[in-house]
Design a protein around this nucleic acid. Structure first.
Lengths: 221, 221
DNA sequence: TTCAAAATATGAGATATCTCACATTATTGT
DNA sequence: ACAATAATGTGAGATATCTCATATTTTGAA
């Protein structure tokens, strides 16, 4: 993680009109951070003292279950808050977040201004809206996902998680994320290759038929 | 819907320490409401001017899809907010809520105090916590539900939605809620009857083997 | 480097669930 | 009261997905 300075920093701060988020002067507490692709923003179990607002990028949210298994819960995309639940609950239970692409975040060091944040109506209102949308989004995802076979969900997922036309995720993770068996995931990937939608190469599955993939993904709508 | 008065009203107001929710005097805006079983708290498409906090009871959240089909999204249980998304977004109710049991709610007439609510940090903070938990709950429901066959999910659902040992829901609704076909729902219900877990009678399916039902439901954990 | 663990891969049979077709009851508006 | 519509119920074959067994490859730590 790298803190931006100078022009780069100014660019993001000015472009996002950060002042609108708060009724007090937030500037002493903020930084603009750049995370490399694959870098961890939060590690599980750590004690978060930072609230992030992702401005650009994409990341994965992980959770470890009681039995020790790790599963990929959700892909998150800018703009969004990260670490907001921990701020609200004084809680320990942090989930892990790892970037998928290079990611730019506004970071707020909460140790100095937590009380101000939790007493700041403009900020809280925005957080409420964010959380409300998140809940709604989860709801519709949940309702719709049960209605479609893996073929469609996987197509949508490949679109979301691929980078430069290459899909390269751990099957063991993704089958949990998509709620299917490892065997079945492999089976459907093989189907995609069979249909020349994907092509399996050393460095991952290459998307050969963007059109058809989108079509399959959009059946979910 | 019936507004409580006198002792009943005082009982709920005192027991819930409503003052802690707000930093201003909320009393001019609140009522205690009792809804009968089966009554609608919100109808879809209506213009909301009330925020509810459910103190006792259980209700169903419905949504109408673009294609006109209605589906049962979620069972909600006290304590919880209702109408909070609409308060935040100035939107009309996109979802309908119907009680399952008699339900007691604190109602807040928002026309008089919306601005105060949206500027009231203690209230917003509580709302954030509620929404955060709702999002987390949806997440875990979503993750776990995909992992279990209908047998288990239906058992859990019957426990949630039955009243006095009798399960009586519209199959056409429930199959959508549980994300399975009508045919399959009927099939698994028949299995339950076969196994003497349920017994089909004129007024609904009677739960005969609470023990076994719980066992099936708990496999989801 | 080496070895154990994790991840990848594939086959084969079992099961959960779907689709469609059709018949039989409720429910509801007029 | 009646027709139209919605809800219920059932059969049969198709498909999506699972489980288990087992082999190979990759990865990470001693």
């Amino acid at each position: 993680m790298q803190k931006l300075t100078g022009e780069e920093r100014s660019y993001y701060i000015e472009n996002f009109q950060i002042e609108d988020f708060f009724s007090f002067n937030i500037h002493p507490y903020i930084e603009i951070c750049k995370f490399d692709k694959g870098e961890w923003i939060f590690k599980e179990g750590s004690f978060p003292d930072t609230l992030y607002y992702m401005m650009e990028g994409k990341a994965k949210l992980y959770m470890t279950h009681k039995n020790g298994k790790v599963s990929l819960i959700e892909y998150i995309e800018a703009p969004c808050f990260m670490g907001e639940i921990e701020l609200l609950n004084e809680a320990r239970y942090t989930k892990g977040i790892q970037t998928v692409t290079e990611t730019i975040c506004l970071s707020i060091a909460t140790q100095g201004c937590k009380d101000m944040l939790l007493a700041d109506a403009p900020f809280l209102r925005r957080l409420c809206v964010f959380l409300g949308e998140k809940a709604s989004k989860m709801t519709s995802k949940y309702t719709q996902n049960q209605a479609y076979p893996l073929e469609n969900r996987l197509a949508a997922f490949i679109q979301l998680s691929s980078d430069k036309g290459i899909y390269k995720e751990k099957h063991t993770e993704i089958c949990e994320y998509l709620g299917v068996s490892y065997r079945h995931l492999l089976y459907v990937l093989a189907q995609f290759c069979e249909a020349n939608i994907l092509q399996k190469k050393k460095n991952g599955y290459h998307i050969m038929d963007e059109q058809r993939l989108m079509q399959l993904a959009q059946e979910i709508q």
